[in-house]
Design a protein around this nucleic acid. Structure first.
Lengths: 126, 126
DNA sequence: CTAATATTTAGCACATAGGTTAAATATATG
DNA sequence: CATATATTTAACCTATGTGCTAAATATTAG
């Protein structure tokens, strides 16, 4: 069973989970790049980069353009949709803490004044 | 301008790249859960779940609480920080299209007189 | 103390991700 | 046409992630 359904949140996150692929995305942020440019910018072989680009393409994070004078070159650019979808998921998950806020306030208030020691606490209020 | 600062973001995305772990996160969105509850909710063994929880814990996405009457149970809950960090990275990347917008508008305007149908809008990908 | 419960660790199997080199494909150029 | 260039596909290797079962650890209950 293929674990990466196309265009899905899963495919997006799998693609983004690789640091090389994230760096590729960072490069494409400034301008579309040819495959060769990307190969030169990383310490990996052309086939390795080609496969990273394929993963990114199949996840919808980038698209390949062949327009241009030289038909040998592939120009890669970012596509917004998967980022938007991920944003949506993140918003949903983070909405959790909006709901938590009330409960948290009640919790804090109920414990107000009882704090003696703070063992590596990561809560607010320093 | 390095955007893909390694470390925490990497661990976060690796953790989120697994569908089981994302479903765990979805479950923890409603309330903190014991490890056993999570095991019961998934078609995997307790050790398998334990390792997913470890990955999530080490990435900072969840934390383990042992408070409660029974010291055998571990209660897991979400932590906001990694989500916030991911949000930050996403915002940075998505800022790309804000910049693209101007260029796009210029592009559209430059072609404005040449269009016969399809008034302003809808690019490729039908 | 012994048994039961909750969870993790250990050890093993297997699929797959990511790297490499060699070959294939497609196109430009002399 | 022959050769160089740009990129991908093929074949292979190794490391690691995920799943399982069995055992270990910790704690509660009888």
């Amino acid at each position: 069973m293929p674990v990466s359904a196309e265009g899905s949140l899963d495919a997006t996150l799998v693609a983004l989970a690789d640091p090389t692929r994230r760096r590729v995305i960072d490069m494409l942020r400034s301008r579309p790049c040819r495959a060769g440019e990307l190969v030169d910018a990383f310490p990996i072989s052309a086939p390795a980069m080609s496969r990273h680009l394929r993963v990114l393409r199949e996840s919808g994070l980038i698209e390949e353009d062949r327009i241009g004078g030289d038909a040998r070159v592939r120009l890669y650019r970012l596509r917004p949709e998967p980022f938007t979808d991920l944003q949506g998921w993140l918003d949903e998950v983070r909405g959790f803490w909006a709901g938590q806020l009330d409960a948290f306030k009640v919790h804090v208030e109920s414990k107000a004044g009882r704090r003696k020691k703070a063992p590596a606490g990561r809560k607010r209020r320093p």
